[in-house]
Amino acid sequence: MKSLAELKAIKEKMQSKVVLREGGEEIRVVVGMATCGIAAGARPVLNAFVEGVNKENLTSKVSVSQTGCVGLCQYEPIVEVYESGKEKVTYVKMTEEKAAKVIEQHLKGGKIVAEYLVSEK
């Protein structure tokens, strides 16, 4: 059985790490979680980012959060990437697979995945 003692151990481990995390996140990943986003499949996309960012040890520089409707419901699930000093990047019609590629190429490698951006056509 999972016990609260186990949770306490996690807490103590986290507290010892807090100091290292005070650098401030440079990149913010924001997933649209309004009715339109959720219906289009935003929940697994959000989870893919949360898990991927942790797996790749990017938590000190990348934060993942949720927002409401961005106003482009037909393009949901939508993921926005904010980076200080750079223009906002908007990825559309996201999936778990696409999330993995954005983590690898954009969040880790610094290169925007152009094929997932909203088309100009």
Binding site: K2, L4, E6, L7, K8, K11, M14, Q15, V50, T59
Partner: peptide, 18 residues
């Protein structure tokens, strides 16, 4: 859980996994 965690956020990955 908050009582146990004190000032550690519930949003921390390790906590959510637990």
């Amino acid at each position: 859980l908050r009582e146990v965690l004190g000032d550690v956020s519930l949003a921390k990955f390790e906590v959510v996994q637990w």
